[in-house]
Amino acid sequence: MVNVDALRGYAADLLEKGQVRAVIGYRRGTAGVLAQPCTIDEAGEAETLVWDPTCLNNLARYLVEDRQQQAAAQTRNKTPDGRPVAIVAKGCDSRAVAVLLQENYLKREDVVIIGVSCEGSGVIDPRKLAARPEGRWASRVDFAGADAFKVTVGGDETLIPARDLLADRCLECRAAAPALNDVLFGEVVTERGLDEPFRAVKAAQGATEDARWATWEHHFDRCLRCFACRAVCPMCYCPECVVDSTTFVNTPGTTAEEKATRIRWCERSASVSESALYHLTRAIHLAGRCIDCGECERVCPVNIPLRLLNTKLEMEAFEQFQYEAGRDFGQASLLSSFRDEDPNSFIR
């Protein structure tokens, strides 16, 4: 079991000694059963930190936001506080931090990773919980070993099999403990056996070509282009997105000719072709970088199974190139390295 009191003590100690600027973690949410992300900068607030199966968010996103704020402060000629930030990280979150380190987006000394192990379990899928009669009014969800969750409804506690509530990505997870950490709470459990890795992708690609397109056409057609998937992704940190140009904004001085000759890779209309271009571009940009935290899929307001696009490429990276994103922040990135024995038979 993760000792939450020890976790709080460690965070309070870091803040008290002034070793970190802030701690990014989870606290009890105000709406419903889910925990919410929080940033604490006083030792006294460390008491509010929690760790339970409702800590869904990938907090690495906030490291990205923090770095952007630091950079913005620098441009305003303010000297930012150079102390590191501590982050409470699950297995998948720590892999996200590893990718950010690999890409030199962060420096190792700028982040303190407080690892928490999922201990053979994982986080819940709130949709699966809400679909159950007792889950509707649940006030708490706790770990109860690797095989079950303890769900509290009113004063009653029920045990629900872990398999029924776990998020899809947790079922397929291969490393449920943070390999990259400065301190680790909980035990490292590597044997899981809940589901085989990449099962959902393999099932999806078993369909015929026409059926696959029918499915994805349906999904791309429903996309609202709200960009929630991009906003939540810890890897989507480009200052300018290909679908959302900030350099080519129309001003009163923009001539008609400039507008006509400007390169537009992707229109803003939410049509099948443009949404396809957006999602496929995003999937390719995440090739070898996606650590399968499933956040894009979780935040999608129209339930597009976005995880499939990313895990498809991660599966190819793993099977063809023996590459796992976030395994080691010293490794060369997937697309900047090659081997002589890479697949060649598809080339004429």
Binding site: A204, Q205, E209, D210, A211, R212, W213, A214, T215, W216, E217, A276, L280, A283, I284, A287, L308, L309, K312, L313, E316, A317, Q320, F321, L334, L335, S336, S337, F338, D340, D342, P343, N344, F346, I347, R348
Partner: peptide
């Protein structure tokens, strides 16, 4: 070599969403 890796992934992705496999070639 870098192109081979990158475009292999592009080909796989296009096939995955159901574009006819023949349409992209190297």
């Amino acid at each position: 070599y870098l192109a081979r890796r990158k475009l292999y992934l592009v080909k796989q992705l296009l096939q995955f969403v159901g574009l006819e496999a023949e349409r992209f070639r190297m």
